[in-house]
Design a protein around this nucleic acid. Sequence first.
DNA 1: CAACATCTGTACGCTATCACACATAAGGCG
DNA 2: CGCCTTATGTGTGATAGCGTACAGATGTTG
Lengths: 256, 256
Amino acid sequence: MQELHVLQQNALLGLLPEDELKRLLPHFEEVTLTLGQSLCESGQQMDHVYFPIDSIVSLLCVMEDGASTEIAVVGHEGVVGVSLFMGGETTPSRAIIQSAGKAYRIKGQLLKNEFYRAGPMQQLLLRYTQALLTQMAQTAVCNRHHSVDQQLCRWLLLSLDRLPGDKLVMTQELIANMLGVRREGVTESAGKLQKAGLISYHRGHITVTDRPGLEGRVCECYTVVKEEYDRLLNGSSTFHVDSAWSSNRPTGLPIR
Amino acid sequence: MQELHVLQQNALLGLLPEDELKRLLPHFEEVTLTLGQSLCESGQQMDHVYFPIDSIVSLLCVMEDGASTEIAVVGHEGVVGVSLFMGGETTPSRAIIQSAGKAYRIKGQLLKNEFYRAGPMQQLLLRYTQALLTQMAQTAVCNRHHSVDQQLCRWLLLSLDRLPGDKLVMTQELIANMLGVRREGVTESAGKLQKAGLISYHRGHITVTDRPGLEGRVCECYTVVKEEYDRLLNGSSTFHVDSAWSSNRPTGLPIR
DNA sequence: CAACATCTGTACGCTATCACACATAAGGCG
DNA sequence: CGCCTTATGTGTGATAGCGTACAGATGTTG
């Protein structure tokens, strides 16, 4: 039971009924993910599905000329590797570690077997995938209509929600790659935030000093995504629809 | 069997084994969709799931200030309403008819029941959803990195692939809403294409006169999406993985 | 400590797109 | 036909972000 609690550090797994989780327990493996590491290259088969704990994974869409854009971010509220149970096996996108930390992983085939039991795990993974759809859609519209300033706020808040503290390790260069803009653009926007006293920046180490201030500057895209995650994965109906079991699971997602 | 053939006008349904389709046949209903009609407003429950035949549906992400961006387009190769079987019931996005025509629809609850049989229909819908994920991701990166010119080409080709002929009924104003740019920007780009002899434009009626020419100007985003749809929904492995039946279905998707 | 690599800040001209304004044209309808 | 609505074309100035170049600052390593 002790070990179950450990798996539940990933909030998605934490939503599963304990007996379900217990069955899978022996198949999970804890791994350490390092900054910049790639979990999945474009078009390549993943062996495992990853459930982050305190790490953050960025899903990037990379183009032929090397330009890229982050299409979604995954932390302890989610899972990396949806294409495995969706049936496509591969995706054209890339998954890289945006913040070092730990994750649990399980063999793709094992998760797939579990998925096709059509139980709580399937429900959960499908709902999570829908949340991912929303995040991607909102990212697309944000790319189109919002300034780099706003997008940086969104990005910072999304990352912060997936981290234990208020510090992130990330150079402006890397943020620029995520947002699909120039490094100088990030420097400028980050400068504004720093002058406003919302963050302090120091050679790849960001400390958020005024989170409410960030929230005041961010575009609606952040809120829309957050609320949809709450609704889909933390709402009272998480396991009510089309399911025949009840769960006295621990209270839901600790996304702040 | 005659009627089965009719349902198979939607290529997704056409990929199902005939006995599966036969079971669902009585529950399908043909409807006519008119330009501009909304199948789904943000956050509202859909009653039906739609399988377009010769109509095209745009999935839009609309923001508070009314600005919008198309995040995906659905025609006879797909289905509108994935959120119903994904478990979320609603999405924050809007689905509007981009090209008038017919579609088959089925009650959401009925499709959901079918989905939870964990048979070919589930496989198919999941694979389609993954294709949708790819389309959305590529749209996001295209929004970020490519010019209006390129995006217009992409949009035209995506629409053309879902239409029987080489004509589309669509004002520049509406295209601008889809792409999330100004109407004048579309006028300018469309003017270039017209001068180059690739399209002819006339008060809301576009005729594509040189499709290869368009393909020569389009960005990679079009091809990436198209190939991923082919791989996921038309590839030789469509029903090979994790499934225990064989199908001598009609040949796959007629996406050109 | 010295040399070096990395990270961040700044500047300048350039281009695509925006916002707004307005002109032209084509079809619908009395 | 004449009027009105709708669709398209054009023009002008503003602006955000790009590409490039370079300078300062801060770690790191020999």
